Amino acid sequence: MSSIADNIGSVTRRIQKATLQSGREPDSVHLLAVSKTRPADDLIAAYAAGQKAFGESYLQEALDKIQALSGKADIEWHFIGPVQSNKTRQIAESFAWVHSVDRLKIARRLNEQRPEALPALNICLQVNINNETSKSGCRLDDLDNLIAEIGQLPKLSLRGLMAIPDPEQSETDLRKSFRTLATALRKLQRDHPDAGPLDTLSMGMSDDLEAAIAEGATWVRVGSALFGSRPAKRSQS
């Protein structure tokens, strides 16, 4: 069985190869280790192998791991799951990034509850790129209005867009979904130059990171290729 360190090396090489083949700068794509449902020991092993950015979806589980790894101050915690209104305070207080902001109410709460002592909270707007009823995310048509409003919130740094395309698509359609998100980001950069850095595309996972990188991903969110098959889903909060 491969170790977590071996898996990180393998995924890193995949990212580097895909980045090179796409004609992009070597350090333009970052690996986010999706550590939801994983025990703290797995994160410690990944950290020992050089991984510093971890993505969590379940708040209480994440807070327990943040506490367990509190001595490792250079870890960067990313919240990547649906954001519930009653959880925004702890998310605003505990994370450096939130990839899954999908409505103005959530953005406003995160802004109001971000502690003054912390730097601006990096956020991405989650787009329901294939209009799936089972998934969170705003519509592409909503982005202009959201960007205009969120750009006025001083404790948020609007970094870009996130999507989870339908995995049942053909490779051609999957590439099209990634390309649609990248095109939307370029339009926002052009139309809202003062809204925030708008430099981030969070898209691509274990099975499709090469396609995502080819279409412009800057963060790829990888879980199973690093940690193995995910344990059976259990109730989380």
Rank of each mutant, 00 (worst) to 15 (best):
F178K: 02
R179F: 11
T88R: 06
D207G: 15
K87N: 07
I91R: 04
K72N: 13
H78G: 08
A163F: 01
K176Q: 13
S134Q: 14
L201M: 12
D27R: 06
E56K: 15
S100K: 06
A184M: 01
L174V: 14
S206N: 02
A46Y: 07
L198F: 12
L43E: 04
I75R: 00
G228P: 06
L143A: 02
E25D: 08
G137V: 09
A18F: 09
G151D: 03
L201C: 12
Q152T: 09
A107E: 04
Y47Q: 11
V29E: 03
L185W: 02
V29I: 08
D142A: 11
R38M: 04
H30R: 08
A48F: 07
D141I: 05
A212M: 03
A62W: 14
V222K: 01
K36L: 13
A53I: 13
G228R: 06
V98Y: 04
S10N: 09
A33Q: 01
D144R: 00
L198E: 11
E215C: 04
H78S: 08
A184C: 06
T88Y: 05
Q126A: 09
Q60M: 13
R190D: 15
I150T: 13
M205F: 10
L158E: 15
P193I: 13
F178V: 04
D27P: 03
R230S: 03
T218P: 02
A117V: 15
S134M: 13
W219Y: 14
S57D: 15
R13D: 11
D166E: 12
D6I: 06
A195I: 04
V98R: 10
Q16F: 00
A117F: 03
E215G: 04
L32W: 01
K187T: 12
V222A: 02
V34G: 04
G223Y: 00
T180H: 05
T180V: 10
N7E: 07
R175G: 11
A48D: 12
